[in-house]
């Protein structure tokens, strides 16, 4: 195992896939000469040159569509959004073109492309830069969605996403880039999409979550342990494909679950997961599934308001206590 940051893990994944497949290229704002707005692509320009590490203008719709068109004609682009907040300018190209061309062309023209960048809030970036964007993308058939929360998952899943033959939205987090963790030193470490990971085993309650929120869940679980509650933390890792089996197994063991996510509650990821659990494991539930989400407001700037708006350890513990009827 090597210890590295989430940023370094992503960089290694890109490097290895660029080396492995000449049809892979990286395009986005500031990815080349600037080394990436968050330095994820550091050093790649020197290694692969300006044709494969491409600085685009600030033109999200344009370079996203360009990526999709190049994927339709045989390349395997990785399109970086400086943040997924900016991807809304480009979402037509993702949903109407990338996600539908294979279907509309009766399987003739596919679109192997990765859209990657951070989702969710960082610190005091205010309303337009602090949105969790998962729901927009996971809603549409034709798109896959990956949300790694650790360096190892970031590396293994990005490699899988680049090799996948479909459009994959790959959502990172500004606050994750400096997180350190162990990453296997295999020559070719790939984590298949659609496999959840139990980040902490427990048998009293299941905390279902994804992405950055796994760290909040783990902190909450630690505190709960001191209080005699043994929480299981299930990191979904990819939301489409979704590892329903692992979710259901955990719920059948603990009989209680909450969903923790960074985004808004209405039609959020947790709403879908709750629906699946009640449809397929109703008899195992001893309490309703509760959801812990961001406050249902645009993210405010003021430090105190932002803190209240974000889902935190305190909210997780409250929800867990509720489903345990304590």
């Amino acid at each position: 195992m090597a210890v590295m940051t989430y940023r370094e893990a992503l960089n290694e994944a890109l490097d290895e896939e660029l080396a492995r497949d000449p049809s892979v290229f990286l395009m986005g704002e500031e990815v080349a000469e600037y080394d990436g707005a968050y330095k994820v692509s550091k050093g790649l320009l020197d290694k692969y040159g300006p044709k494969r590490i491409v600085d685009s203008p600030i033109s999200e719709l344009g370079f996203t569509g360009l990526g999709v068109g190049s994927a339709m004609t045989g390349l395997r682009p990785v399109i970086e959004f400086m943040t997924f907040n900016f991807s809304f300018l480009a979402i037509d190209q993702v949903i109407n073109s990338a996600a539908k061309t294979l279907y509309m062309s009766n399987g003739q023209i596919g679109c192997p492309i990765v859209f990657r960048g951070p989702t969710g809030a960082a610190l005091q970036l205010s309303s337009q830069h602090s949105q969790a964007c998962e729901t927009w993308y996971v809603h549409a058939p034709g798109v896959k969605l990956v949300v790694p929360g650790t360096p190892a998952d970031a590396k293994g899943l990005l490699k899988a996403a680049i090799r996948d033959d479909d459009p994959v939205a790959f959502m990172e987090g500004e606050l994750l880039y400096n997180v350190k963790g162990e990453v296997p030193e295999d020559d070719d470490f790939v984590i298949p999409l659609g496999v959840a990971d139990i980040k902490r085993e427990g048998d009293d309650v299941t905390i279902l979550t994804h992405g950055k929120m796994i760290h909040v869940a783990l902190q909450a679980a630690q505190k709960l342990e001191k209080d005699g509650v043994n929480a299981e933390v299930v990191d979904l890792r990819s939301l489409r494909p979704l590892d329903v089996d692992t979710i259901l197994e955990s719920v059948k063991k603990t009989n209680r679950a909450i969903y923790l996510e960074e985004g808004w509650s209405y039609v959020g990821v947790g709403a879908q997961i709750s629906s699946i659990v009640q449809e397929e494991a109703f008899d195992y539930l001893d309490a309703p599934i509760l959801r812990v989400t961001q406050a249902d407001v645009p993210m405010p700037y003021a430090k105190n308001l932002e803190q209240i708006a974000k889902p935190g350890v305190k909210h997780v513990i409250e929800a867990v206590n509720q489903v345990l009827y304590r």
Binding site: L102, Y103, S105, N106, G107, G110, C111, P112, P141, G142, K144, D164, D165, D166, P192, L193, G194, V195, S238, R240, P241, L242, D243, V244, Q272, I276, E279, E280
Partner: peptide, 25 residues
């Protein structure tokens, strides 16, 4: 059967890709 064909080029061996009623056990 063509209805569900070619939504994805690659049906991943793990996890669920479709979420309508026909996927429900």
């Amino acid at each position: 059967d063509a209805l569900y064909r070619d939504v994805y080029a690659e049906i991943n061996p793990n996890g669920r890709l479709f979420f309508d009623a026909h996927e429900r056990p």
